[in-house]
Design a binder for these strands. Structure first.
Lengths: 353, 353
DNA sequence: ATGAAAGCGCTAACAT
DNA sequence: ATGTTAGCGCTTTCAT
């Protein structure tokens, strides 16, 4: 066992209370005692044990994070933003993955709650009807959603709205598709990750519909594909093979998908953007390094993480204060961060047929 | 405060010990008592508090992870591998970043140790002389290095060698450069991340030297660049502008650097691979989606994470057993995982001058 | 300014 | 099979 406050106290010839005081409010200890204690700490290599402290305090200065995967840079950057901000605010981060399995979400959160994290940041498959979020709410654990965008609070739901940090997915997708339309595209196909794994994908499809309709164009049903792998799908291949049927532009619900699509198109002998334009969503940094540059709509992932963490910590401290005072209502904010269309060589005006 | 074992015991009309038993070895509790307790747990929404358990047990079933950044996919994937394996083995992950600042490494580890993690997985700037590792060793906290490759244990060092999981960076780099040589390149320049931020980069430079010398070619000093941004460096620009002086191939110490380099080369009006070949290191997945495909040497990052976690857990459990028995020597393994050259269009035979 | 003591939630002897 | 009790490391009254 590592040295505890007790050994330090013994060695310094004081009580454990005094050592604790020195650690917490150094002002309340006489200079010479402090000196003695510091020496003992040094000598023993003592390091305060957060477990003891947390048990006593009932809080851990630790936040839990649940993301679908780290294989998608978007979430890695978000986590990066969370960690940086957490470190600045003196919080620690415990994190976990769901691999896009909605059924793993609650287990992940349960585990985090077992560790008594003070709050949770999470991205879920569907924030609409989600047992995990209900659980969090029931247990009064502060949480912030990232990427998920909340619909209006359900009728009859408490004033306590849920907190989220995201871009306006629908508007962002609409802007992206509008960009394609403005370039002259009329037959635009949307390629999407599974709707049931991502409510964002659905919002983005709505954005696609908005843009198409606003331009008086016929929207097509989205093609949903597994993860970021594409489409040995026969009908897809066939559609692409036929220059008449083929869309002149592809709008993809995320950049990884867009990049995979571009590779697959090349394999089919199609050139981007000459034969077909491709636009992504996310604006991951590597997209800007490619040639042609991947046109996309950029969401500020690291900032999403940053804002989420700060929002969460604010909620944690507010709820702690409220518990101390008397149940003040915890209000939550829906942060909508700005997105931006990134033009790129992958999206150009269609060649006139 | 959330319900504790005590409330459950009260409600069920049993002692807290019985509740604890049910939680830990369910066999030792009678069926009807178990039934009663389960009902109480259900009713109260009780969830065991790991903090209490950990304090008592002196271990946390949590591992700490320290990586330079999550902006580089390589580390994100490694962390992904760690998390997956940890979840499988029922461990939790607390993680932190150093932003490549060696001076932040010890603070990161100190924090983790404050949380009483059972072990640490880390990637440091320089594993050779590293106060943080010495600290870990002194405190007898099991740890595993990732990406860092250990040199021979220093003379007089304890039999307890340090554990690491990596590829053979030197051999891998040598293979990469040998591939370029085999394509016909003779003037090969290495572009590297800062040596003082990454001992891997140094090993990779040695690999470059090995390959060049083995082929009887003149190695050049590496050009070190900041992070993954390149080279407004005047001398670099100048070298590249001159078709005679210009190397026919660039070997980059990581893929992000290689991709940035390719972008910069394009900006200079050079075409890859026609005017110059580029080879990276890491084999990040997006590299394979580009056109041309980024030639690279692939290291299995997710597997590195997986193996690191399993190695660490083995060490943790071994050291716990040793503590119980009597100080058995803790042996550590240096895992060297296989790398593979990934050929790609970015590296082709040079056009004869 | 300092100490004594209680207690946070839990587990593990040690009874019974 | 179950209860009693001590104690993990720490903070925090309450005394002095």
């Amino acid at each position: 066992m590592r040295p505890s406050i007790k050994q330090v106290a013994n060695l310094a010839g004081v009580s454990i209370a005094t050592v604790s005081r020195l650690l917490n409010k150094p002002g309340s200890v006489s200079a010479e005692t402090a000196e003695k204690i510091h020496r003992s700490i040094e000598q023993l290599g003592f390091r305060p044990n957060f477990t003891g402290r947390n048990l006593r305090a009932g809080s851990s200065r630790t936040v839990g994070v649940v993301v679908p995967t780290l294989s998608n840079t978007v979430f890695a950057q978000c986590l990066q933003g969370i960690e940086l901000a957490a470190r600045e605010l003196d919080y620690s981060v415990m994190f976990t993955t769901t691999e896009y399995l909605p059924e793993d979400e609650s287990a992940a959160v349960e585990l985090l709650l077992g560790h008594r994290v003070d709050g949770v940041i999470l991205t879920v498959a569907d924030a609409g009807a989600n047992a995990t979020l209900d659980l969090l709410e029931r247990e009064r654990i502060p949480f912030v959603l990232t990427y998920n965008q909340l619909a209006q609070p359900a009728a009859g739901q408490a004033a306590g709205e849920r907190a989220s940090v995201s871009v306006d997915n629908r508007a962002a997708a609409c802007d992206a598709v509008a960009h394609l339309i403005q370039l002259g595209h009329r037959r635009i196909q949307m390629l999407s990750g599974r709707f049931n794994a991502s409510d964002r994908a659905i919002q983005r499809y709505y954005g696609y519909l908005d843009a198409m309709r606003a331009a008086g164009l016929d929207p097509l049903p989205a093609i949903e594909v597994e993860r970021h792998t594409l489409t040995a799908a026969a009908d897809y291949q066939q559609m692409m093979a036929d220059p008449v049927q083929r869309p002149t532009a592809l709008f993809c619900s995320n950049d990884l998908l867009a990049m995979s699509a571009m590779r697959d198109l090349r394999a089919l002998g199609l050139r981007v953007p000459r034969d077909i334009s491709v636009m992504g969503f996310d604006g991951i940094p590597v997209g800007a390094l490619m040639e042609p540059v991947l046109a996309s709509v950029v969401q500020p992932s690291e900032q999403i993480g940053d804002v989420a963490l700060r929002t969460l910590v604010a909620a944690i401290e507010r709820s702690a204060a409220a518990a101390a005072a008397g149940g003040a209502p915890v209000t939550a904010a829906r942060h909508v961060l700005p997105h931006a269309v990134r033009e790129g060589g992958s999206a150009a005006s269609p060649v006139q047929a």
